[in-house]
Amino acid sequence: MGRSTGLAGPAGAVADTDPVEGTASCVGDPDPVDQVMDRFRDSDPVDEVVRRVRDALEEVFAAVAETGADTAALLSAASGPGREPVAADLAGLRPGLRARLAGHPLVSGVGFVAAPGLLADAPGWLEWWQRGPGGAVRPLLLDLDPEHSAYSDYTHWDWYTLPRETGRRAVAGPYVDYLCSDEYSLTLSAPVGLGGRFVGVAAADVYLRHFEAAVLPVLQRLPAPARLVNARGRVAASTDPDHLAGSLTRGPDFAAVLAGPPAEHRADGLRMLPCGGTPLVLVTAED
């Protein structure tokens, strides 16, 4: 479900472990994945899956980090003694948002979602741009008046609450995004701060079909059917016809697998490997 289904568990296990300031730097970091992979040297396809998943998500997180940095700079310039930012100030984000949609094929929507009360002239605001069916880039125009719309309060969605509560970047979903695109999606987000205060989230949407296209080729190289699941057991991509995307894998505590050391776990007849710093677990049946 949109508002509550996240990769992160209720206790924040969903959130990525990298602090938001470090998002851009973690792309090439040497990390424990490589040590784990030493144990899998005879199974390079697993290595490839982990790398592909990490690279795909890091590419999107890079767009999120750029948006967050732009927003922080813009809000900082628009704030001062006797001056509060207004909605029109956020229009300055648009060239960057357009460039990110053009430059990141995985990203279908990107923008900044203001915390209620941030802007002097609007109770809430989404400066959100997305690619339409024909490829045209257009803004999301939501009715945020609670008198008119039952969907005006966006502060319950995982992509908003997770970064706000943990102070870290997060991956929400897969979930049906009926607020922005009506598509089955992953939303990657990170908190934006102004003078140490949470002022909203920068975020980017990835349609699940695009994520699948990015990871399926490497999943198909594995010797057995496999799936990627989030901290709550929701399948995000799969080559196992019995466990397709959107289904639940019940039983194992995937949040604990993600919180634990980056090593293979076995439980309930499943082999589970955290996907290097991302909140996804690679799951295959035990031999």
């Binding site: 479900m1 897969p174 049906v176 009926y178 089955y184």
Partner: peptide, 25 residues
Amino acid sequence: SRLYGRFHVELAAAAQSARLTREEI
């Protein structure tokens, strides 16, 4: 009426189905 509708949209989203969600909308 708006909340009645939202419940059914959320139910379809809980089903993990974008198509059913669009139908409800």
